[in-house]
Simulated assay, not measured.
Amino acid sequence: MARKTLGLADHTPIPKGLRLPISGNAQKARVRLSKLHARIANIRQEGLHKLTSWLRRRFHRVLVKELKVGGMEKNR
């Protein structure tokens, strides 16, 4: 099939580096995979949102402190 679209004879090898047309099934697979990646990203984002919302409701104040891990390792 790819040979016919490129205009090559049946016995002619396909040159290296030549981009072949993408088949319909490959395009469908690409779309399915991108939808799956988007779904997983949404699930992760929702989990993070639920956690931060719960922390906000549970505690009045949340403090974030920057730790110098290199200094902590030296004190071991």
Rank of each mutant, 00 (worst) to 15 (best):
E73P: 02
P13V: 05
K16F: 09
A26F: 02
I40Q: 12
S23G: 04
G71F: 14
L63S: 13
E46Q: 11
K74Q: 08
K50I: 12
A41Q: 08
R3D: 00
L20D: 01
I43M: 10
L63H: 04
S53P: 00
E46R: 14
R76C: 08
N75P: 03
V62P: 02
L48C: 11
N42H: 13
P13K: 05
G17H: 05
W54Q: 12
N42M: 12
A26P: 00
K4E: 10
Q27R: 10
L6P: 00
K4D: 05
G24W: 01
L63G: 07
A41G: 03
T52A: 07
G47E: 15
N75I: 09
N75A: 12
R44N: 14
H37M: 12
I43F: 10
T52W: 11
V31I: 07
Q45H: 11
A29I: 02
E66L: 07
N42C: 08
I14N: 07
N75L: 13
G70T: 07
E46A: 09
V62A: 09
V62Y: 04
N25W: 09
I40A: 01
S53Y: 13
A2S: 14
R44C: 07
S34Y: 03
I43W: 08
N25L: 08
R30S: 02
V31L: 09
K16E: 15
A26Q: 08
T52Q: 12
R39L: 04
A41E: 06
P21M: 01
L33H: 11
P13N: 11
P21G: 06
T12G: 03
R56Y: 14
V31R: 00
T5W: 05
A41R: 15
I43Y: 09
R44M: 10
N25G: 04
R39P: 00
A38F: 08
P13T: 02
R32S: 02
K28G: 00
S53H: 13
M1D: 12
K28S: 01
L67R: 10
L33F: 09
N42D: 11
L6R: 02
G71Q: 14
V62K: 06
L51T: 10
R56M: 13
R30K: 05
Q27T: 03
R58Q: 15
R57D: 04
G17C: 06
A26K: 10
A26M: 09
K4V: 06
I14K: 03
T12W: 05
L8H: 04
T52F: 13
M72Y: 14
V62H: 10
L33P: 00
R3A: 02
K74F: 04
A2M: 11
H11P: 01
K74S: 12
L33E: 15
R57Q: 14
K74M: 07
P15L: 08
G24C: 00
G17P: 02
H37R: 10
L36T: 07
K4C: 01
K16A: 13
G71H: 11
L67D: 15
L6H: 03
K35N: 13
L48I: 15
S53D: 10
A38Y: 05
R57A: 07
G47I: 09
I14W: 15
D10H: 14
L20E: 00
R19H: 11
R57E: 15
T52I: 12
A2R: 14
N75Y: 10
L55E: 15
N42G: 10
Q27C: 02
R32N: 09
R56Q: 15
W54Y: 11
N25K: 06
K28F: 06
L67Y: 09
N42W: 01
R3W: 03
R44F: 05
R76T: 12
I14A: 06
L6C: 02
